[in-house]
Nucleic acid binder design. Structure first.
Lengths: 198, 198, 198, 198
DNA sequence: CTTTAATCGAGACGGTACGTCTAGTCTTTGG
DNA sequence: CCAAAGACTAGACGTACCGTCTCGATTAAAG
């Protein structure tokens, strides 16, 4: 969203309109692809004036950011299985499930945007990189505390391995992001942490 | 390129023109970004008619594919240091060096396209995934032959770890793709192969 | 014009823009000729986006039709000198004066179009033939009423003689369309009506 | 045609090609209209290189001039029925027959061109106006010699009446150019000459 | 029997304009 | 003061022809 002007005066913002736009954006993206999801097309789908979209979002990309926030809304709760590999497997299984179904078109669309717009990339980095990595980092720290991983373990490397692979498969579609992938990756990350740290 | 019609009849193709277009495409991409690199802009930069571009390429994306082929022309020679980790480190160091400098804008541009066009994605997959992975696979096989890696080693996992991380950093720019990254990743991949295989 | 959608809602049509386009079209036609009067050139001259022209007119020809209507706007009032020859002379003198000065480039341009586009020809016929002929026909009828012309007088023949000659000279420019021409033609038409009717 | 360089040396002009171009031009004009009769289309139809057309004609208009000359080839022989009205009727009947059938698309196409190109108009005037008028003028002179028409008869007026009407109907198609039209026009022209001369 | 000069086909080329499209902005009416 | 409708500017899209050009392959007459 752009602004939050005077809350009391004049006609209040139509909450239905706001939701309709988010829903329309997602529908068009799913059914007709990102290229077809023009502001005009979304406005038509939502039964809303173009200007109403431009009033609240700077463009296509920020709009879809909010759609994503809406869809991926609920915070992921960190698992606690007792082992690092188990925790990571559970975290990845959940993440991959969402990312390879509902969120897939959204993630790909936003990735396409951030590759072309550095300002947008900066915004997205927070959500797509820092926030996700924080989850993994806390798993790593917990495992270090338990003495399961060496204290020198670099959580960044673990993150690169698991999320790098996730994005790689999301982009090129050469292999699925299923439960088996989550398990294999968790095992690999664990091995890397234990044996490859200097 | 689209076609290669009659070789002898008619005015021969102007090779200078062809090169000028590739060069102009790269220049505009570097200096003004992918969004600004319209066919019209490239044609102007190359001092060439738009139609001449459309005659030989279907659009922006295939044109930049050829630019990439041109820039990344020479085949990467596989290193032979005696150890898997050493080989992989050398391979990644070279690859990362190219990918994080000259090829960077090209790779990002082509990634943005493939995320939006499934037909194009299919074409690109060959170059960006299959071909690159083949290099890693042969390193793995050599190491298995030497008894350095277990016979069950999954080369696909190794590929996902190293190239996943490469694309991840290429996209989000959160960490550099330097020599240290190559070494760290090689170590991690080695550990995963040795210790994480069932 | 193409359409006249909802009259009330939305931003109303900008009358300045509309007028500027008509004026620009006429200016370019006068100064640079019909061939140079491309939609793009007219849009530039009017300081208007191409799309604004395409929104309201189907193309060059309908646009110039409206320019003509604008220029030749005021209805020609039928003269009443007492004699058929006198009336016809007055009508032709006025018509020829307009047609050989201001309207000349317009008439020639529209003639060129109608010769190449049958649909457009049909539209134009109403304005250029039926409407003009109606004026002459009423003069003929009045003269028949006065007993000045025989009842069998064919008004179509009179029309062909006077307007045929007008267009002929407008096209080939071999003789002027001046007062003398009007008088001579009126006399000829009168003689033909009186003496050549079966 | 443009030029006739050195007659003897080099490969002689291919007469089949020349004919094929004229035939193709006429065919495309008849079947697809003047707008579709581009040089490129005609060249394709004739199975000829574009350059071969540009070598011999300056453009579309001069090419179609030669097509007309080819079609309207044989000189019209002046009739001699004994009376001016009879002669004129015969002349017009023949002229109208040709002009409203085979020559119709050609005449319309050339008229469209001359309205847009003053240089071309000058060339055409000779063929379309002066030459045709000469025929009528000699009929008038013969009639004056016979004492059938007054010595002051203005042949130009007669020409304007008959050819003006002819072009007028050719352009707007509001009435046919048949035998009846020839007779009616001849009568009108005769009456105008006899009774309307000063 | 080779040279020389011109024609012809094919088609690449730099251009211009086409008519369509989308992005954003602006300007009304109406709730 | 917001929302809807829609007119507007700006400019890229891909297409069609323009007229010019550069080829190799013919085709004669001249040497």
């Amino acid at each position: 969203m752009i602004e939050q002007p005077s809350a009391t005066r004049g006609r209040p913002r139509d909450t239905k309109t706001h939701g309709a736009i988010l829903r329309a954006a997602f529908t068009v993206l799913e059914c007709e692809g990102y290229a077809a999801a023009t502001i005009e097309r979304i406005a038509a789908e939502a039964g809303v004036a173009k200007q109403t979209i431009y009033r609240w979002w700077k463009g296509k990309a920020p709009l879809f950011m909010e759609v994503l926030a809406h869809k991926a809304g609920q915070a992921i709760e960190l698992p606690d299985s007792g082992s690092f590999k188990g925790d990571l497997t559970l975290l990845l299984t959940g993440t991959f499930a969402a990312v390879s179904t509902t969120l897939r078109p959204l993630m790909r669309a936003l990735a396409a945007e951030l590759l072309q717009d550095d300002d947008f990339a900066e915004t997205v980095r927070d959500v797509f990189v820092r926030r996700r990595r924080a989850n993994v980092r806390s798993l790593v720290e917990k495992a270090i505390g338990r003495g399961e991983l060496p204290v020198e373990t670099d959580p960044e490397l673990i993150c690169d391995i698991v999320f790098g692979t996730m994005w790689y498969r999301l982009m090129f579609d050469h292999s699925p992001l299923d439960k088996a992938a989550a398990e294999q990756l968790a095992a690999a990350a664990n091995a890397a942490a234990v044996y490859a740290t200097k």
